[in-house]
Structures are given as C-alpha cells and as structure tokens.
Simulated scan of single mutants.
Amino acid sequence: MRDIGKNIKALRKKKGMTQEALAEALFVTRQTVSNYETGRSRPDLDMLVKIADILGTDVTQVLYGLPAGQDRQGEVRRLAAGCLVIAAIFLLMTLPAPLLNELLLRRYVGAMLVSTLVAGLLRPALWLVLGWCVLQGLWLLQVIHLPEERAWVTWARRGVLLVLAVYVVLLLPPMVVGLIQVIQACLGVPNEAVVEFPQLPAYTWLMNRLLRFTAFTPQGCALIGGALWMLHFSKH
C-alpha cells in the first residue's frame, strides 16, 4: 500500500495516458497527479475510485498493484488471439482455393469476382494483423515501448478505423454477389437466372483502383496494422 504512487504511474503508463490526460479526466492539475505518483500526497477514497475507473481497473490494483505476471499474461493472450486470427484468415484463403480454381477454369464470373475480392480483402487483412502481432511481440520482448496516448492519437486511431471500415463496406456488396454466383454455379443454375451485380461506373472505377492497390501491395497493410498497435487499438 506504500506504493500507491508507483501503482498509479504503472497503471497510467499501461493505459498509455500522460499525466496531463489523467489530470484532465480527474479535473485536477497535472501537479496533483505528479504529487500522487511521487508520494508527496495521497488521493482520498473517492479519488482512488475515480482513478481506478479512468484507468480501467479496480481500487485494489491501485492500492496494491497488479499481481505478478498478470499484466504480461493479458498481453500474451492478445498476441495469441492475433495469431489465431492470422491462422483463420489463412484457412479461409486456402481451403476454398481448389473449388475456386476449378470454377475459374470454367470461366465463371462469380469465381473470378470472389477470387479478386479475396485478394483485396483477406490477403490485406492477413498482413494487417501480422503487422500488429509483430509489434505486440516486440513489445513483449521489451524491444519497443508503447507511446503515451495523447489527444491526436485518439483521433488518428478513429480515422484509421473509419478508413478500414469504409473499405470493407465497399467490398461487401460485390463479395456477396460473387458468393451467390459461385453457389448458383455449383447448383447448376442456368446462366440467365444467375444473379448479377449492377453496373455502376463510378463504383466500378473506385473498386478497381482499391483492388489493384491492395492486390499488388498487400504488405503495405502490415504498416497499417503496426500503426493500429502504436495508436493503442488493442487497449480500446
């Protein structure tokens, strides 16, 4: 309990917050937070509850700190989850490949569409998660450090996530139509009854540019994954 200040500092850094950010959330001055962390003063019970709530923990951990190894175990679990996501994406890319290749040889439009969109969605997603996992692993090895969260970090994280969400939403309609076409082809549906994606020139032009970029440079998505890690994505 003598290390309340050290516990507050450790939990604050784990959250990626600066003293200024914590002080603003507590409606106190930065010097007050500094005094808490250096032991010059101690927060009362109400303040302890507020600190715990803002740092996403409980009062017990503010008073006594994290149990030995608990924090590291949580980060290892995050890395393991990321690795499982990579494995799942890899399976989604490889298992349907023989069927898609056979349908491509028969020149089914749906198969060509799905194959193209897999290259534009799953492959970039694989590299994106891989980029995040690499930085998470380096952080666990204490090779790099997570930067403190500032106001611009929050907005940058939201901006990156918004761009990714828009990209996925743009890909979903043709992906769904392509999957329906593949299923219809497997069921032997006549060509005249096959569902077709509407011709939208502006949309087609945009999709071609996006798919060309992601299909030929999917490794660049690893940089986006690394940026999400640096922007505290896993902490929110």
Score class of each variant (00 low, 15 high):
134 V>I: 15
134 V>D: 04
136 Q>W: 03
137 G>V: 09
137 G>S: 12
139 W>H: 09
139 W>K: 06
143 V>L: 09
143 V>H: 03
144 I>W: 00
144 I>A: 06
151 A>F: 10
151 A>I: 09
152 W>F: 15
152 W>D: 15
152 W>S: 15
153 V>P: 13
153 V>L: 14
153 V>S: 15
156 A>C: 15
157 R>Y: 12
159 G>I: 09
161 L>T: 14
162 L>G: 11
163 V>D: 10
167 Y>I: 06
168 V>S: 11
168 V>C: 11
169 V>T: 14
171 L>K: 00
172 L>M: 07
173 P>L: 02
173 P>F: 06
173 P>A: 04
174 P>C: 02
174 P>G: 02
176 V>I: 12
182 V>C: 08
184 Q>S: 14
187 L>Y: 08
189 V>Q: 02
190 P>Y: 09
192 E>L: 02
193 A>D: 11
194 V>W: 00
194 V>Q: 08
196 E>N: 10
196 E>I: 12
197 F>Q: 05
197 F>D: 07
198 P>D: 07
199 Q>N: 07
201 P>Q: 04
201 P>R: 01
201 P>G: 08
202 A>M: 07
204 T>Y: 03
204 T>N: 05
205 W>D: 13
205 W>P: 01
207 M>D: 01
208 N>R: 08
210 L>C: 10
210 L>P: 05
212 R>I: 06
213 F>V: 10
213 F>W: 07
214 T>G: 04
216 F>I: 06
217 T>R: 03
217 T>N: 06
